[in-house]
Amino acid sequence: MSDTTSVTFRVHRYKQGDEDPHHDRFAVEVGPRTTVLDALTAIRRTQDPTLTLRHSCFHASCGTCGMKVNDHEVLACVTNVRELGTDEVRVEPLDNAPVVSDLVVDMGPFYARFDVAERPLVRESELVPGSHTAAGVPQSMRYEDCIECGICVSACPIAGTDPAYLGPAALAAIDRVRQEPRGVDVGPIMRLADDPHAAWRCHLAFECTEACPSNVDPAGHIMQLRRSLFARGWRRPSAEPQGARR
């Protein structure tokens, strides 16, 4: 006997040039192990090939399938549909990022902030004897643990009102550099963090930490960054909001 049930997915739809976004409903048969990403790809395959979503690894490693499911920011690939406990599942793109199409948002601004933060970069492959970076890549460029999904920025209430806010992921990366500089001069990035639109902008909702699927604890890093800034007696070098540079 088939152990499947029908679940309705209410999916955000928007294409460039559309007057308004809207929601479409799709009925999907789900089993005990069906994830939201499984259901969305099934919709794409069997019901509406124009549904746009981003995904890659299917195991919470690549960070590309971040989206809002029933108002919570999650990775769709590891979100079990039945465990949501609702007959209707509402699926929307992440907040605080430009929507490109349906469930896909433009991650460019998010990545740009990471670059500004000079993310540190410890990747497991660096620790493997004989490992080397790919041709044309001068060094590994990924903050350990953070999968760069953008979920923290979507969950952050401050990112919703301050477009210049550096954001939880980039600030966590700065703090990681502070903790382990590995030869990097931390002065410039600490000055970047000591800005009205950076570490001091956080209002401690801790939504980023709660939502982070990789347990990076961005809010905790921001608080440690503040403690360090306070202890070191860093002063704002100028009135120019450096956090807005990008």
């Binding site: 928007y14 559309d18 976004p21 929307e92 793109p93 992440l94 907040d95 605080n96 990022a97 430009p98 929507v99 948002v105 433009d106 209430p157 990112a159 919703g160 009102t161 477009p163």
Partner: peptide, 13 residues
């Protein structure tokens, strides 16, 4: 709303 990227704004607070 879409151009601003579903930014929650003050009401999001």
């Amino acid at each position: 709303v879409e151009r601003q990227g579903r930014r929650r704004g003050v009401m999001g607070w």
